[in-house]
Design a protein around this nucleic acid. Structure first.
Lengths: 218, 218
DNA sequence: TGCTACCGTTTTGGATCCAGTCCGACCCCC
DNA sequence: GGGGGTCGGACTGGATCCAAAACGGTAGCA
């Protein structure tokens, strides 16, 4: 039963992807408790694979766990938000610097393909697609650094703010900023100018974090 | 049955601590497959809490997982080792810089208490105790930075090399280096000189990574 | 002799069932 | 009327059982 393009080979992987999507898309609200029985039933699995998926998400910081009280969707305080972005600044700069000397045409092609989707989605205002393509863009670059642990850490940092970040793309002006900053960074990468690229990405993040900080105060 | 000072409130937490200890102490060798049935029986629990503990360890990178083939203790390549230490360099420097302005007498007391244990253990050659006290020393400092995510990430980086790092302390000269470098860093911290402390910690790590790299080539 | 298909064993993945803990409502007593 | 204790429901934690996938060995065949 090929119900979707590729259904993961184990239930826990399926559940993991599904729950992560539900959290980062805001379907499961920050702070909300996770009722295992109900969620498992909705996903048509038993509680066992769900619990293992939740353990993974706990490791990623997307949910918090208290013994005998279960899991809740993690909430982000203002201090958390600042910390995440500070760490991203440090780690992504490292990734970019490591990646630049290793960039090849294949990577550039991937970057430009992703960027094309970003631009089209920005025009159309399709938030979900823009978020996906934006991630593809950045991680295509990070992957090029050939530092798998670094990429994984950055990935978890992205995940932990995904639920909030989607909001950023709802502003049309924000979307225009993203497109422009990507283009500038791409030009710097083409010119093998890591510091230039780093500066653009820093500005990119700084703009986002300010907007998000505003959002976080409701 | 108070079989140990404090037995965790759930079996999975007990198992987690136990398996982590077994891995970082080298009792479970890198690359070795983990037979769930046997291990669960040895720890006198069922496979369910063991599996959840293994998921946590997977998130920390201490074990690797393949669907339908189970868990194995993670192995470190030379590239991995270098990456871990490069990331520690970046992140620990950030932690130290953030911590210095926040240091209070309580933290200094903890640092010096840990350092005293390190020095005694270094004399006696008690490897296990030195490793524990060394970790307490460094993390007392990191915790002072008030950046919980950062501390957690650094913690997982430490864990991923623990199985190898114990080897470092078996050399007597290495132990003397550690003591001296800690003292120098402590003096810099007392003088509110973050850059001085960062330099000493960098040297501290650089010495360790070179020895470990040698070990890793068997 | 080397390859392949098959089958039994081992091991992991998942479902169900039971036990223990937590939380809130209610009641008693002060 | 308010505070503390107790009971019951809801939910999580763990054990056992069953299903499915992977591995190893063997036999059959080219």
């Amino acid at each position: 039963m090929p119900e979707s393009a590729t259904r993961p080979p184990t239930a826990q992987q399926f559940v993991l992807a599904e729950v992560r999507r539900a959290i980062t898309s805001g379907e499961l609200r920050p702070g909300a408790p996770i009722r295992q029985e109900a969620l498992a039933e909705r996903l048509e699995v038993s509680r066992v694979p769900l619990r293992e998926a939740l353990k993974t998400l706990q490791g990623e910081g997307l949910v918090v766990y208290l013994a005998h009280r279960g899991y809740r969707v993690a909430e982000l305080s203002m201090a958390d938000l600042r910390e995440v972005y500070r760490l991203r600044e440090l780690l992504e700069a490292e990734a970019v610097r490591a990646a630049v000397p290793l960039l090849d045409e294949k990577t550039f092609a991937e970057l430009e393909a992703a960027q094309a989707v970003v631009e089209r989605a920005a025009e159309d205002g399709s938030i979900e697609e823009m978020a996906r393509a934006n991630r593809r863009f950045h991680f295509a670059l990070f992957e090029a650094a050939a530092m798998p642990r670094l990429v994984r850490i950055i990935g978890t940092l992205w995940d932990s703010t995904d639920a909030y970040r989607s909001l950023y793309y709802t502003g049309e002006e924000n979307r225009r900023h993203v497109v422009a900053e990507h283009r500038a960074a791409l030009a710097a990468l083409r010119a093998s100018d890591p510091e230039g690229a780093v500066r653009w990405f820093d500005r990119h993040r700084a703009a986002a974090v300010e907007v998000l900080a505003g959002q976080l105060e409701e």
